[in-house]
Each structure stands twice: as structure tokens, then as C-alpha cells.
Amino acid sequence: MFENVKMPEGMNPEVLEHLMFPKNYGKLDNANGIGLAHDEKTGEYVIFYSLREDEIIKDAKFATNGCQDTVVIGSMFSEMIIGNDTEYAQKAVQKMHEKLGELTPQQKVCADIVFTAFIASMINYENKLEGKEEEMHVLKMKESCNGEQK
């Protein structure tokens, strides 16, 4: 499956489809893990909602005020992980990271903010399991979408 994942290195029909109709975009009302990756410098954020049953990610959604690269990557990534277990999702993050060489520095940052929000949603789920009261787990980004170092 991973072999067929095409990253947005050019404007192919798959990318165009994700641009026109982002998959799994919006709020997930019954999410049990909510993660926010936030870039304080630019104000950009990705919020990631996941619904887990034990180790299986039954559903996921995301929303962002970021650029179209963030939307395309969020759309592709959420499609990859739904219905799979958390171990698969971690591999998906790793696998997509391996492909980042094909991306511009800005697109790499866009990918990172999506993955960071997903990881934050997993942390939120675990925290709630441990009895912590946490509406969402927030992780701050170290790099901004414009590719500059903070």
C-alpha cells in the first residue's frame, strides 16, 4: 500500500482530486483523541481527530488553516491510517517521512505539522485512558511553513 502513495511533488490527477475534494476534512464529533499542532510564529495549526478502539484507528478527521500542501498531505495520510492499527499508522508516518526528500522544505514542514497533530491525538487518547482530564493535546511546532528556522 505504501508503495502506491504519491506525494505532491507535481500536479498529478490524484493531487488535484485531494485539492478539490479533501478526504476526512472537518470535525469528528465522537473522537476519543484530539491533537493540535500549532505554529505560534505563523498562527498555522492542524487539529487531528481520531477515534480509536483499542489499537485500531476506526475513524479520523483533520482541519487546518494552513496551505494546500498541508491539506493534501492530511487528506492522503488520514486515508492511509483509517481502519489500520496504531503500529501501521506509526509506520505510515515513517514511510511518508522517507518520501520527504521529494518535497520542498516548505512541503516537509507541512507534512510535519500533520504528523505532529496526529501524534498529539494519540497522546490525548493515552492521557484520557490514564484518567487525565485533557480536552486536546497541544504540541508546538519548531519550524514554520515558510521553511524558516524559529
Binding site: 485539492l19 472537518g26 470535525k27 495549526y45 488553516n65 491539506v71
Partner: peptide
Amino acid sequence: GILALPRELHELTYVVKDFQKFIKDGIA
């Protein structure tokens, strides 16, 4: 031939808690 709806706004985008920061970010 690529007409599409803009994606939905999340409340984190429009419920502004820090007005000054919002305007400064808007200028940027």
C-alpha cells in the same frame, strides 16, 4: 475546470481570543 468549494472553517480559525495578535498575523 477546477471549481471546488473552499474547505470548512474550524472554530479555531474564527473564534479570536487575542485580537491584536490576530490583526498582526493578518497583516503578515
